[in-house]
């Protein structure tokens, strides 16, 4: 029987959503143009060439190396792109993704990525065009709700704060706003003003966010109620503890 990846335990909608995020089989909900993406990431001007840190690999005369032969370089590495970042903040009020599941989604489904996971934010570093692929995937799919998730390179405070009345996650730098029923971003990741308002579309309704989220909450799907996940955590914990004794 062919191996089928299982990703994550649990019988609840949250567990199912976690499996979706990890597998990469997520629903596409919106379009973000390449120029708009470039604008909000803030690493280069839309339409400009990718700055590079070395010549294309094909021109570099690389040494003989079996690993190089086995592993094909990513497009960004081939071209010599700089390593740049995309960083998301996800609200604890039923944002679709969470830092660890963004990390798992990136690490499992994309090559050449270096994810970093914190409590309030999650960063992926990669060669610039490779990073953009990850960023676009996460922005355009059900992994993100424009009201409950946002791009924040710095000053990330907000994931755990109460929501403002308009439901747009608190942002000290006010990068996103609700205008005419859609969420627009008028500053880039690090809060510099940009030339246009980038439209990320309508926020998810509270019901939709609750349905798509990967965070357990007592007022939605309580962690306490997902017995299989808790049992699995206990198993991991016991095995890691027992390994300290180096069992034969």
């Amino acid at each position: 029987m062919a191996y089928e990846a299982q990703y994550y335990p649990g019988a609840t909608s949250v567990a199912e959503n976690r499996r979706k995020h990890m597998s990469g089989k997520v629903e596409k909900l919106r379009e973000v143009s390449d120029d708009d993406l470039t604008l909000v990431l803030g690493h280069r001007a839309p339409g400009s060439d990718y700055p590079s840190t070395h010549p294309p690999l094909a021109e570099m005369g690389e040494p003989e190396c079996s690993v190089r032969e086995m592993v094909e370089a990513t497009p960004g590495a081939k071209a010599g792109d700089r390593v740049r970042y995309v960083q998301f903040v996800d609200s604890m009020y039923n944002a679709p993704s969470t830092p660890y599941f963004r990390t798992y989604a990136a690490a499992i489904n994309f090559r050449g990525v270096d994810p970093g996971t914190l409590s309030g934010r999650q960063v992926v570093e990669a060669r610039e065009r490779d990073m953009e692929e990850v960023a676009k995937f996460q922005l355009e799919t059900e992994m993100s709700c424009p009201a409950l998730a946002s791009l924040r390179g710095a000053t990330v405070h907000g994931h755990s704060l109460r929501l403002p009345e308009d439901g747009i996650m608190f942002d000290m730098l006010d990068r996103c706003r609700l205008e005419n029923g859609v969420v627009i971003m008028h500053k880039d990741q690090v809060g510099r003003a940009i030339d246009k308002k980038v439209d990320f579309g309508k926020p998810m309704s509270e019901e939709e966010a609750a349905k798509r989220t990967t965070i357990y909450r007592v007022d939605n799907v309580a962690f306490r109620d997902d017995a299989e996940v808790i049992e699995w955590v206990h198993t991991i914990f016991e095995k890691r503890t027992a390994y300290g004794f180096k069992p034969e």
Binding site: R18, T98, Y100, H159, I215, Y216, V233
Partner: peptide
Amino acid sequence: SGWYLSMYLHKEALGRLGFF
């Protein structure tokens, strides 16, 4: 030991824990 189990549970429940 209880401390570490708490860390595991916290991470799984909320999909996040502390800094890197």
